Amino acid sequence: MTSHRHPYDTLGGATLVTSALAAQEAGVVPATIRKWVQLGHLRPSGQQGRSHLYRLEDVFAAERATRRAPRRRTSATAGPASRPTSAPLG
């Protein structure tokens, strides 16, 4: 007999959620959760089948850390370069 786990499962008092629920709680898309893991801002705290489980506390901490971090401007995001305008000919 297998028991079905509630999506807001607990382990040692910590609330564990799937990446989809973690994204919903943080107000981001699931790809953002995967990106936070890739960048080292978030680590899975468990596993349910093939799905990783995350502590809500860790998800919210990663969300705060990434919202606080200043964004680096690159040439792709900086927009058009400012060029000196020439005086009209005439």
Rank of each mutant, 00 (worst) to 15 (best):
G13M: 07
A14M: 13
A14R: 09
L16N: 00
L16E: 01
T18I: 08
T18D: 04
S19M: 03
L21A: 08
L21F: 10
A22W: 04
A22R: 03
A22C: 05
A23Q: 01
A23C: 05
A23Y: 02
Q24E: 13
E25R: 13
G27A: 05
G27N: 04
G27V: 03
V28R: 02
P30M: 03
A31C: 09
A31I: 09
T32D: 05
I33T: 01
R34C: 07
R34T: 07
W36L: 02
V37R: 06
V37H: 05
V37P: 04
V37D: 02
Q38R: 11
Q38Y: 12
Q38M: 12
Q38E: 11
G40W: 04
G40Q: 05
G40M: 08
H41R: 13
L42H: 02
R43W: 15
S45Y: 13
S45I: 13
G46K: 04
G46D: 03
Q47M: 15
Q47G: 09
Q48V: 15
G49V: 07
G49Y: 07
R50M: 10
R50D: 12
R50E: 09
R50Y: 10
S51A: 14
L53T: 02
L53S: 02
Y54L: 05
Y54I: 04
L56T: 04
E57S: 13
D58W: 05
D58R: 06
D58A: 12
V59A: 00
V59I: 06
V59E: 02
F60V: 07
A61W: 06
A62K: 03
A62Y: 05
A62W: 04
E63P: 07
R64T: 07
R64D: 08
R64Q: 13
A65Y: 08
R67Y: 08
R68K: 14
R68Q: 13
A69R: 14
P70R: 09
R72K: 12
R72P: 14
R72S: 14
T74I: 15
T74D: 11
S75P: 13
A76T: 15
A76P: 09
T77C: 10
T77K: 08
A78Y: 14
A78I: 15
